[in-house]
Design a protein around this nucleic acid. Structure first.
Lengths: 189, 189
DNA sequence: CTAACTCGCCTAATATGTCTAGGCAAAATA
DNA sequence: TATTTTGCCTAGACATATTAGGCGAGTTAG
């Protein structure tokens, strides 16, 4: 049989595209095999199981997201950095819904450590540097920002804001204003 | 064959329990059938398909969550109401992870309208009443709060905060303080 | 009180997806 | 060129989702 020339990169890319097009929940070994023009079992020479396929997409998404965030934050500080960071995050999530969902895939602790996840925390801390928060406030703020961005974007992607005429962009801008205000003026303990 | 006496309530309860125990993603028609002591096809007399099974759990979760939030907010105002509301939300999510995930299940628009989802928005607006926000700021704030609570709790449940010694409870308290401060003092447009 | 009927649950069977075992030939290497 | 590796294949076991059709327990009509 002619070889299909499957590489880890081609496989992961196909899976990521599929996730974006059909949803992360519909990402199956079968669907990837179809897209690559091979039979299902052939893929098991390249992946251990279906979970690993999803893991690959998750790791890719974490990398891409961290890269986008890093580029956004570079050369900015304070409010500018916060807004650019948040917009990069939201832009990626809306532009790549399947990959974004993958980034929330539960990885085991060892895999997380070797992933781009730690870069996300570092980048968030870099953004917060402009606000001069001492510990443990900075850790709290990292969690606050992560949670807020993730939650807002998830609800928006799920269509939760379509029932009201107010635009999701405008609410997002208001949210960032409020966040910036709070971080700058919140009374120290 | 002896009848198993399946009612919509028993079925939904079994599905909800299964979701909490095994995860919403692992909620299957087969698993529910096993738990109820019947064969898979027997359930199709009670549900249309697997999607409807999940929908049932989603609707139950939205109801329970709205009930808990309503009870928490009753008789409170301002900061007290905000904290009680948020704690009810977080408590439910951590106590019933499967049901909570179900509450994020994408329902079609007609189903959402008949669900407890609108109550959630109303309750959030009730909480915000104490902060005297005009429109469209109030709508923005509703989205902000929903997103923040949902995101924080999702990340916490996924174990995203276990890598740092700082307790998730303390970060939560900090978050609520900050939110309250921002809503009270944010400059009007 | 029996006859008819409804409807809850069953078996059988198909489709799709995950994954293992074993085979063959193309590609890499000796 | 001979050998080894290995990418891809077929066959097949097992799980889940779902449809079709049957049978008998509970309910209702005569």
């Amino acid at each position: 049989m002619a070889r299909a020339g499957i590489t880890p990169e081609r496989l992961t890319r196909a899976a990521a595209e599929l996730a974006d097009e059909e949803g992360f929940d519909n990402l199956t070994v079968s669907a990837v095999a179809r897209r690559l023009g091979v039979r299902d079992p052939s893929l098991y020479a390249h992946i251990r199981n279906a979970r690993e396929l999803k893991e690959r997409v998750a790791l890719l998404a974490l990398e891409e997201l961290a890269d986008a965030a890093a580029a956004a934050v570079a050369g900015r500080a304070g409010r500018d950095a916060l807004v650019a960071f948040a917009d990069a995050y939201r832009g990626y999530a809306l532009g790549h819904p399947g990959r974004y969902a993958a980034a929330r895939f539960e990885l085991d602790i060892r895999t997380v450590a070797g992933s781009a996840a730690p870069r996300h925390s570092e980048l968030t801390r870099a953004v917060l540097r402009g606000y001069g928060l001492p510990e443990p406030d900075q850790t709290d703020a990292v969690r606050f920002l992560h949670g807020t961005f993730h939650g807002y974007v998830t609800l928006e992607a799920a269509g939760g804001f379509r029932h009201t005429p107010r635009s999701a962009d405008d609410s997002w801008a208001w949210l960032l204003d409020t966040l910036d205000f709070a971080l700058r003026n919140r009374p120290r303990p």
